[in-house]
Every structure is written in C-alpha cells, then in structure tokens.
Write a protein that binds this DNA or RNA. Structure first.
Lengths: 112, 112
DNA sequence: TCTATAGTTAAGTAATTACTTAAGTGTTTG
DNA sequence: CAAACACTTAAGTAATTACTTAACTATAGA
C-alpha cells in the first residue's frame, strides 16, 4: 500500500473514536498532560494512554516527557492531509455536477 | 452518545479503509454499479458489497436497484460534516497560535 | 527517606473487522 | 425455457479494537 494511503488509513481511524476526538478537541486549545486529557473522559488512565498511542502513530499528536509529566500537543499536518483529501473529492463531485448542468443546458438550451 | 458523534464515528471509520476510499473516489466522478466499483479492486464481490454496506450506513453512499443492477452514488453531506469538524478544530488551533503570538509580541515588544 | 504523583506495561476479554468460499435470489437474454 | 448475469446471504476465520484490573517504574515533595 502507498505511504499516503497508510497515513490516511491511520488518520481516519484515529479520528473514528469519540474519546480520541475529545482529546483532539482539547489539544486544539493548547498542550495538555496525560491526566489533564484523561480528566473529562469516562475511561481508565491506561485506556487514555492507549488512545494517545493511536493518535501518536497517526502523527496527529506529538508529546515529550519532562520529569514525570508527558505534555501532548497537536501536529496539524495529518489532519490537513485528510481535509485536503475530502476537499479534492468534493471538488471532483461538484465538477461532475457542473458537467451535468452543461449537458442539461445544451439539451434544453438553458444558456443559449 | 450524541447523534452527531455517532455520525462522525461512522463516517471517519468508513473512510479509514483504502478500498472504501477507492469506491468514494470512483463515485466522486459519477454513479456506478456494484460490479463497476468492484472491477479495479483486488477483493471478492461479496467483500465489495460489505464495504458498500459500511458506506451506506454512514450515509456517504446511497443506492437504488433497477432490475438486477444496483446504482450507487455519493451523498456529500456526511463528508462535509467531517470536513467542517476538522476545519473547526484547525481554526481553534490557529487561533490558539495567534494568541501565543500576541503574548510573544507583548513580552518582546514585537509590535510596539 | 517515605509517600504521593504521573504515567507505563502486561495480560486478559468481548466485540468488531475485513476478508473468504459456497450457495443462494432475482433478472435479462439467446 | 435455459443459461448467463448481477448481485446477496450465510457462515466461518484470523486479526484488530477498546476496554479492564493489577502491578510496575520513575519523579517530586514533606
């Protein structure tokens, strides 16, 4: 599988869980520690660690540990790739609709 | 779980598989039958049917059967929801960076 | 130094996923 | 009517997922 496809697989998969999306939403407002991220979630701390692994393997989150605190922050590139993939498909689809429009125009004289 | 979260779950999950994304890319260029969608893929026809089920349950794809042919087409709303979710987070993140910029400006007199 | 804190690792489990092959159901077409 | 066609359903499987609890490591503070 091409590298780009694997990145899209991992990024879409990472975002398909609402606990992980909650982490992303929180990190979009600035860096946070693991326990800060865990606090509003209704799951155990190890479960949060596992979600962070998934987010880090997709590249959405980056983190470094200082002392005993791990600080997590958002890395925007993978989500931008996903956003662009969707936008590109939407444009293709919209272009296709335009061409249907042209055919209708030619057939029924809409613009003539 | 809120209805919006479930839609995001299903839509992100639907797009996390490269065979399903290939189906979406093909459909962005116009409607197609199940076997037309299957033709370039390296999996069995039942597997394609199962992928179409996933795409239809997320609402990304809609289809109707006429005679023995099922015609599939893209339904843009769910992907637009996903695109907006990402855009909203990016904007929050960018706003956060702007505020860091302001602090740096105030601290080091960047704009004064 | 003892203890609380912050997080990690390990191991187990029930549910879900992405396939497969085999055997259907209808629908055209020769 | 028979055979080819376009799927669909069923059943099975190996891998992955999202958790859990228990036990551990490493750092910080009293």
């Amino acid at each position: 599988m091409p590298a780009e496809a694997e990145l899209l697989d991992r990024t879409f998969h990472a975002l398909s869980d609402s606990n992980r999306r909650a982490i992303v939403v929180r990190l979009s407002r600035g860096p946070a520690s693991v326990s800060q991220l865990a606090e509003p979630l209704l799951i155990s701390l190890p479960a949060v660690s596992q979600h962070l692994d998934v987010l880090q393997k997709s590249g959405i989150v980056r983190s470094e540990k200082t002392g005993r605190v791990r600080t997590c922050r958002l890395e925007p590139a993978p989500m931008k790739t996903v956003e662009q993939w969707i936008a590109f498909n939407r444009e293709t689809w919209e272009g296709h609709l335009d061409r249907i429009g042209e055919v209708l125009d030619q057939t029924y004289g809409g613009t003539e």
